[in-house]
Design a protein around this nucleic acid. Structure first.
Lengths: 164, 164
DNA sequence: TATTGTTATACTCTATAACTATA
DNA sequence: TATAGTTATAGAGTATAACAATA
């Protein structure tokens, strides 16, 4: 290259343009859907995505999850889980229960009210998501799920290597 | 359903489980990759993703973009673009140029230094992205790109309808 | 009146690091 | 010493609304 300029056209002809285009498109898709979900959660339920995500985790673990487990599943650090949990406890949607044999830890779980509230939101949420993927038939949905499975698996391997 | 509980297994058998699973996976993938890209931008270049994205837009429009255009392309509101642009101007990486015939507007464009800086970052960025998609062969990359194209198209249509 | 861009503000989300209590 | 969780803090990222200048 004779000039210091590396414009998109130049990159578009490079060896790895396919990966870059794919990443930009993946990011755009998830941002578009996420923006809509956040806005709907805000407007219809006056809540946020991290709060919804935390409750979704608890909903599939009726026995409760420890703060550490929540932190790992939500991919955020511990302090944030404490903050969101505190909010939800204040609103009576989740509760902290003691753990037998370890007085440092808690199990966090949905209260009855929290479960009812989540079921409400989850039903709406399902509709938003179905709407988001209306453009795809069942076979497309399956292909996309499988391909993203490969992507996800690879990210987890990369993270595992970094942790060593 | 006889109990108020709607656990994941129940939802997993519902009509729309496929869409929900796909959405969760899509979100996880983009979050995993995005986290890595943000961390690398921070560590290696002491910058952020929105700053990188703004510069990327300018890099592919050497003639410059108006604030309004940047706001639309970056999918954020105007105030934020002003803030990021101010930072980059202070650092001498971009500049505001007048627009002939409209004294309200500016063209924002990369300075020579900004362009050089971006080229540097873009080369590294390309490596991170290539690494992120190593698990996929060329055909997978293409399929994924096409399928996400359908998803993107549909989101844009949904947004268009909302704007009417 | 409508549009371009800026300013001011507030809130959510996040990571980091120091801390307490328990293992 | 190590681990579970909390607290305090700072900064990124964002939206909203009021504003100035120009169209």
């Amino acid at each position: 290259m004779t000039t210091p300029s590396l414009d998109l056209e130049a990159r578009a002809h490079s060896e790895h343009a396919q990966e870059l285009r794919l990443w930009l498109r993946l990011l755009t898709c998830s941002q578009l859907i996420e923006k809509r979900v956040r806005a709907c959660l805000r407007e219809q339920f006056d809540t946020t995505l991290p709060r919804f995500d935390l409750m979704a985790q608890l909903e599939r673990h009726p026995e409760g999850l420890k703060m550490k487990e929540l932190s790992h599943r939500l991919m955020v650090t511990g302090g944030n889980v404490t903050g969101i949990t505190d909010q939800l406890v204040t609103e009576g949607l989740v509760e902290r229960m003691g753990v037998d044999g370890d007085r440092r830890a808690f199990r966090v779980r949905l209260t009855d009210r929290g479960r009812a509230s989540f079921v409400d939101m989850a039903q709406q949420h399902e509709q938003w998501i179905v709407e988001a993927f209306e453009g795809l038939n069942a076979r497309d949905l399956d292909s996309l799920h499988k391909l993203l499975g490969k992507v996800k698996q690879h990210q987890l391997e990369l993270n595992r290597k970094l942790d060593e």
